[in-house]
Nucleic acid binder design. Sequence first.
RNA 1: GGAGAGGUGGCCGAGUGGUUGAAGGCACAGGUUUGCUAAACCUGCGUAGGGGUAAAACCCUACCGGGGGUUCGAAUCCCCCUCUCUCCGCCA
Length: 432
Amino acid sequence: MLDLKYVRQSPDEARRRLASRGVAPDRIDELLAVDESRRKLLTEAETLKALRNAASKEIGARMKEGASVELEARKAAVREMGERIARMEAQVSEAEASLNAALLELPNLPHHTVPEGRDAAANVVVHTHGSPSHFDFKPRGHVELCESLHLVDFERGAKLSGSGFLLYTGWGARLERALISYLLDLHVHQHGYTEVSPPFMVNAECMVGVGQFPKFLNQAYAVQEGLDGATLGQRYLIPTAEAPVANMHRGEILRQDELPKSYCAYSPCFRAEAGAAGMQTRGMIRVHQFDKVELIKIATPQEGYAELERMRGHAERVLQDLGLHYRVVLLCTGDTGFASAKTYDIEVWAPGQGSYLEVSSVSNTEDFQSRRMQLRFKSEAGGNLLPHVLNGSGVALARLFVSLIETYQKVDGSIAIPAPLQPYLRTDCIRA
RNA sequence: GGAGAGGUGGCCGAGUGGUUGAAGGCACAGGUUUGCUAAACCUGCGUAGGGGUAAAACCCUACCGGGGGUUCGAAUCCCCCUCUCUCCGCCA
């Protein structure tokens, strides 16, 4: 959520910065108009309330003196005033509701280091690690490898839950589990994150807090209890562990000396992918459920961007240690996610696809999420400030899985296991 | 699911419908004392919104889990919801 005071003070700047993300400038005008009428109503209502409070106080004082009968007319007058106040308050809360709704629909402002551009074409590759591995044979795609080695049973996955749901089997299931353990251990032991294991369903407040709602409600799976429609919308399957973990301290006031808070969490991620039907239906690249290890940081505004770079390094480390070729992309204004001020995507090379796959997205949301969550910290100067909230995948598993098996496949159809995973998998090679 | 008890400021914890934004304590900040530490003492210390100011000061409004209601006036009375705890039942 944007800082309303900022928008009020610098409307032109706000318009310009949001325009670079494709937000129509008149959205700001509408916002300011609603805000102005709200403030007008509020001032009127508060003036009336002040009058009523004074009158009530006076009635109380006179009743103590014993005057009761004469006060009836006065009471009636104040009662009438109360009715007026009630009507005005209804108007105020209506204005507040529409102001809030408008505010919740606006995306974050891009950081000044983010390149301007409409879409992915304007993104900038800022770093490349390694190079595509060389093969003496035509590398197979992950679907073929999964089928021949029985790592994933696509047909039965679809039988159980529909297309876009994966049934890992045998070595595939073990590799998935090994990756989860490996990633958590790396971030806990090497990078100093505190491991948490969150609920996989959250309430709507959490979804609003991270910026998923109200705008992306249709991308989520809403659950209900049995056929009790009244419970629908009370909980949602999480699209990422960011939803529960970033909200851990929602509504709290942290001490500055406990920052930065660093959490990592494994969770499955559930995404309806509404509107994405037809693309990438086969395979593991775009699915409705996948595993991910997520990194979350809560930091002071001074440290926010240093932490962003650090977190990006933590995600890159995964791919470096596994010996995978990847590149880091700085997203342009038009491609940056709703809640983010600055985002790096990390894309790993998948030789069988002949393309890069996004396995991580590392973002600083600045105070966009903390304002929505009313998450604050008490600064050393004494005031309550909004911290920066960062999130990054460390990393998404299904696509990492794809890159791994495609990269380490051998001509005989077996797959070599990179050294860091061997202790977890207790083998150096997967073969049929 | 059933029964009961409870949700008050960063934390603990008082609170008779009317100067209670809220006693007291802890924590915290500043000060006095002190060889240092500790202790003691003094002072200060909620949040949000609106108005106001060059910036302050200052003024107003709201907030005692959330939402309604009663009343001239609600932390305090009534109703609904929610969460926590204890006991019972069911269950991985």
